[in-house]
């Protein structure tokens, strides 16, 4: 079968989600779940995973764990900064900066943008796919230079995302 691993990957995720959402592990649930996930896999597999997966790609999951650890660290750091601003009236300098990105895949861009939005203090307002720029609202803009801003905000995430999604 063509792209067997892709299909298996999508199928497993949907089946696990189905079983968790029903909360039962009976034959009835399993049979219906297999039917439902087979149909949805057939319909959506090609649009969800564009490139052909290989067995070697499983190792990339390890980078995902590394990413989560890095993300939690960044989150705590950003929270502490914001707490300082709120409690001790630290002066702020809100601005919108253009930050370049070098990730190719859609998933990589999305992951970076959502992480940056999720960390307090920075929000991705818009994304320009032609010139590869993210417009980020930054509560304490220490620099307006795009490359320096990239070093501070996104480069750490980008390195790991490139390893996960290529």
């Amino acid at each position: 079968m063509k792209r067997f691993l892709n299909k298996l990957f999508v199928f497993t995720i949907i089946l696990v989600f189905f079983i968790i959402s029903t909360g039962s592990f009976k034959y009835y649930t399993l049979v219906i779940g297999v039917i439902v996930s087979a149909i949805t896999t057939y319909l959506f597999e090609s649009s969800i995973v564009k490139k052909t997966l290989r067995l070697y790609d499983v190792l990339k999951l390890l980078y995902l764990f590394k990413y989560i650890v890095y993300f939690v660290k960044a989150e705590i750091h950003a929270h502490l900064e914001l707490v300082e601003i709120i409690l001790f009236n630290k002066p702020i300098k809100p601005a919108i900066v253009a930050v370049p990105y070098h990730v190719e895949s859609d998933y990589g861009v999305t992951l970076i943008a959502l992480t940056v939005t999720n960390t307090p203090g920075t929000i991705v307002l818009n994304i320009d796919t032609n010139s590869k720029l993210m417009y980020i609202h930054w509560i304490n803009a220490s620099t307006f230079n795009p490359d320096e801003a990239r070093l501070i905000i996104t480069s750490g995430f980008e390195k790991l995302v490139e390893k996960i999604f290529g």
Binding site: I32, V36, T41
Partner: peptide, 10 residues
């Protein structure tokens, strides 16, 4: 979207 479909059918 596929997850919503799975949940609705569940």
């Amino acid at each position: 979207i596929p997850l919503i479909i799975a949940y609705a059918l569940a």
